[in-house]
Design a protein around this nucleic acid. Structure first.
Lengths: 139, 139
DNA sequence: CTTGACGTTTACGTTAACGTCAACCACCAT
DNA sequence: ATGGTGGTTGACGTTAACGTAAACGTCAAG
């Protein structure tokens, strides 16, 4: 697609390709209210803003979040522009919850990674033993 | 339930409660071949082995893995007892893939956490400004 | 002895997150 | 004017991961 004074813009197909999803997915997210690209006539026009939003969404998916949870968060990010004190306090509280959750997941991942590398290590030593006994002539 | 020479054992209900899932889930996992508790007559008997397996499974779920992916891994863990060289090499290769994936997720999480805490920080400063202008009399 | 709390299987229902298909329009190249 | 490429809106299909309900067994308490 072309570029405008607003920076680069994308069509559905282009953005879907770049993000590794289908056009169906992008339209679905729009129907679910996760993104709302402008239109040029009938056609959807995605700007950098929609693009980063989508990246956030896909990252959330990689973490195993549901679209409902993701929607809650992106809505909150949008609300961050608000300057009403009450809004900001709600947002801040939610952000702290999310951060705590992320930290827990982070620790969880560390444990799992340690376990996996441990099993892999056992594998390697076992394989070393095997090759040693299989060729005793080599020493 | 009682304890035997094999250590603690659980009934479906007990274990489901402890793990925060329903009995339906445990039976479903069994039907899918993810666990295979012994029987005392008709009733299922879960030992420590099944318990740790289930914890692994649920951890995988928290990471957004499908049951199919999880099954592959737990099968591999079981196969780790094997002493056939070919098996061990396959297992090791898969473990390295998994470790790489976990490291990527780990980095991903770090980025996300950084972003979240950053937004939270902006929130806090904005709130501080608000309370400052709202009460100019306090200095 | 029946009531209630636990267990069992079988079977159908449900929800999320898309995939797939049909039927259509717009434009460009041959 | 025909075909190819890429866009549009429905509408229905699909899969994973259970939920829910029916219909039954079992055992201890009242």
């Amino acid at each position: 697609m072309t570029t405008t004074r607003e920076g680069r813009v994308w069509t559905v197909g282009e953005l879907a390709d770049e993000l590794g999803v289908t056009t169906r997915t992008l339209r679905f997210y729009e129907a679910e209210g996760l993104i709302s690209p402008r239109r040029a006539g009938m056609q959807r026009v995605y700007g950098p803003r929609e693009r980063t939003r989508l990246k956030l969404i896909l990252r959330g998916k990689r973490f195993g979040m549901t679209l409902a949870e993701i929607r809650e968060i992106v809505d909150i990010y949008d609300g961050a522009a608000s300057s009403e004190q009450r809004q900001l306090e709600k947002l801040l509280a939610r952000l702290d919850e999310i951060a705590a959750d992320l930290r827990a997941r982070h620790a969880d991942l560390r444990r799992t990674l340690a376990e996996v590398t441990d099993v892999a290590e056992q594998c390697r030593t076992r394989l070393a033993e095997l090759s040693a006994t299989a060729r005793p002539d080599l020493q």
